[in-house]
């Protein structure tokens, strides 16, 4: 639609600009605060002119919170979640859209229902499962009397145990097990013309071949979009990592920021906290900037 409405154009740009300022302001304030020294950052009101201690603060924050290994942990967990999520979502959506098996709709609705149960809601049972992944199986065996039977016959008492606390798998797997990606993929697969599926069948491609050769390349944009969202989401997780990592070696960057926040009665080193925030914010920001084009395309456009 082409319209010549100078006044309206000006007005829309004004609104856009206001939104932009609104979004960027906290970020600017954080950056300025990170460049002050201890005295300036605690002035009321804080000076909005940048100070000169930016790099010193960054370094202090990096060393104090030991951010190097923590960032690496965050990368592993966020990356693992993103990749795992893309693979699981694509596969589940593939089976739901392309196969007619008994209980298909039941499966679909079961997955759908998990949308209403985010991690925070089921955090206690999830913690129990991660603490011992085999716990549910143990419970089933106990209830059905199977463990009793085995104990009677072999004399061995069955006690299954596989703990994932303080491990990357423990951090990643519960984050992977959500339904959002499955839906994104399902919607995409539904837009893929049936004739393409049929052409692949006529060309002799089996289901897996079709999935790898045709569907996956076609869903590149979706992969990028979903991967980006999941990376950001996992990167910003707080409650879950805090809960299951008691060991510092598996702590994530976002949770470790707490180390930098001044304690009651401690010296108010907000400039260090702000510098640490900047560091932790940077990787997702870079990712969004890099993936922005793919990301938008994957969410809105259906390529013809």
């Amino acid at each position: 639609m082409v319209e010549r409405t100078p006044f309206l154009n000006f007005f829309t740009h004004l609104i856009l600009f206001a939104g932009f300022v609104f979004c960027i302001a906290p970020f600017v304030i954080v950056t300025i605060a990170a460049s002050h020294n201890l005295k300036d950052v605690n002035d009321v009101p804080m000076s909005l002119l940048p100070g000169s201690d930016f790099w010193i603060n960054i370094k202090t924050a990096w060393v104090t919170a030991d951010l190097g290994p923590k960032l690496l942990n965050s990368f592993i967990v966020a990356g693992g979640t993103a990749i795992g999520k893309v693979i699981v979502s694509a596969l589940t959506a593939f089976s739901i859209v392309y196969f007619r098996f008994p209980g298909r709709m039941l499966m679909f609705w079961l997955i759908f229902i998990t949308l209403m149960l985010p991690l925070e809601v089921r955090i206690v049972p999830t913690y129990a499962v991660v603490a011992n992944v085999l716990e549910p199986y143990q419970a089933i065996m106990d209830v059905t009397g199977l463990s009793w039977l085995i104990e009677k016959i072999s004399g061995v008492q069955v006690s299954l145990s596989l703990g994932l606390l303080n491990s990357y798998s423990g951090l990643i797997l519960p984050l992977v097990a959500t339904a959002t990606g499955t839906f994104l993929y399902r919607q995409f697969f539904l837009t893929v013309p049936d004739e393409l599926t049929e052409a692949a069948r006529m060309d002799g491609a089996g289901p897996l071949r079709f999935f790898i050769d045709i569907l996956l390349p076609l869903s590149r944009n979706n992969m990028a979009a979903l991967g980006t969202i999941m990376f950001l989401w996992a990167w910003n997780q707080y409650l879950w990592p805090l809960l299951i990592t008691t060991d510092q070696s598996h702590a994530m960057a976002v949770t470790e920021l707490k180390q930098l926040i001044p304690n009651v009665g401690g010296s108010p080193e907000w400039h260090i906290a702000m510098a640490g925030t900047l560091i932790v914010m940077l990787p997702p920001m870079i990712l969004v900037v890099l993936m922005q084009r793919w990301f938008v395309r994957g969410l809105i456009a259906t390529e013809k």
Partner: peptide, 20 residues
């Protein structure tokens, strides 16, 4: 028999070319 085992080839109305 599966389509690939029948020895048929098909031309579709919308061509159904693989876009990528």
């Amino acid at each position: 028999l599966e389509p690939r085992e029948r020895g048929c080839a098909m031309v579709f109305q919308n061509y159904a070319l693989y876009p990528h």
